[in-house]
């Protein structure tokens, strides 16, 4: 079961249709069972019974999640695959000691994958949709997977299957979510 975590400013918000439902649709089409929970309503049981977790993105003006990083402390000891998308990547970075830094970007841009991983595959160039006011610094214990220092597009924990991507895979890169389902 995939646990899809909604990071929008409130449960059942209008933004959920834009940032959570498209991810849930990809997971459903990939044939996997899933459960959606808002980050303020997440239970230990839901985390326990999931075998993969996705932290979704949210609206450009929404930074509430960043004021509530303590609610994500459970990620630190997680031993199952996790993908943080945009806001979700910012949460992963903050939990593991990285920083959330101003780095606005909107639109399609080239992304250089620089390190082979199970999630993104071998080094090559792809194009991804960006919608964020903030980026991240590389947390201790993480490897740069795409982009460059100062413009990190993707990272991975060096020992665990914990990933973050700053771009939105629901636009033109659905294969990334499908790949997480099959990891």
């Amino acid at each position: 079961m995939i646990l899809i975590v909604d990071l929008c400013h409130k449960p059942r918000s209008l933004s959920k249709r834009e940032f959570v439902d498209p991810i849930a649709a990809i997971v459903r089409r990939a044939g996997s069972e899933y459960e959606v929970a808002h980050f303020t309503e997440l239970t230990e049981d839901a985390i326990e019974r999931s075998d993969r977790i996705i932290l979704c993105g949210t609206a450009l003006k929404d930074n509430l999640f960043a004021e509530e990083i303590c609610q994500f402390a459970w990620i630190e000891d997680l031993d199952k695959p996790l993908l943080g998308i945009c806001a979700g990547m910012q949460v992963v970075a903050a939990v593991f000691g990285g920083e959330i830094v101003p780095q606005p970007k909107i639109g399609l841009e080239k992304i250089e994958i620089v390190r082979e991983t199970d999630l993104l595959g071998p080094p090559r160039e792809i194009e991804g949709y960006h919608l964020h006011n903030f980026g991240v610094t590389l947390p201790p214990g993480f490897d740069l997977v795409a982009g460059r220092p100062g413009q990190i597009e993707a990272f991975k924990h060096s020992e665990r299957p914990v990933y973050g991507i700053i771009f939105h895979p629901e636009v033109r890169n659905r294969w990334i979510v499908e790949q997480l389902v099959s990891l």
């Binding site: 209008l14 249709r17 498209p22 609206a59 003006k61 606005p104 006011n133 629901e170």
Partner: peptide, 15 residues
């Protein structure tokens, strides 16, 4: 919307 400090919502996005 960013320049005007407004929220932007696209509820049919990728439907």
């Amino acid at each position: 919307c960013r320049d005007l400090d407004l929220w932007c919502f696209n509820p049919l996005w990728q439907i």
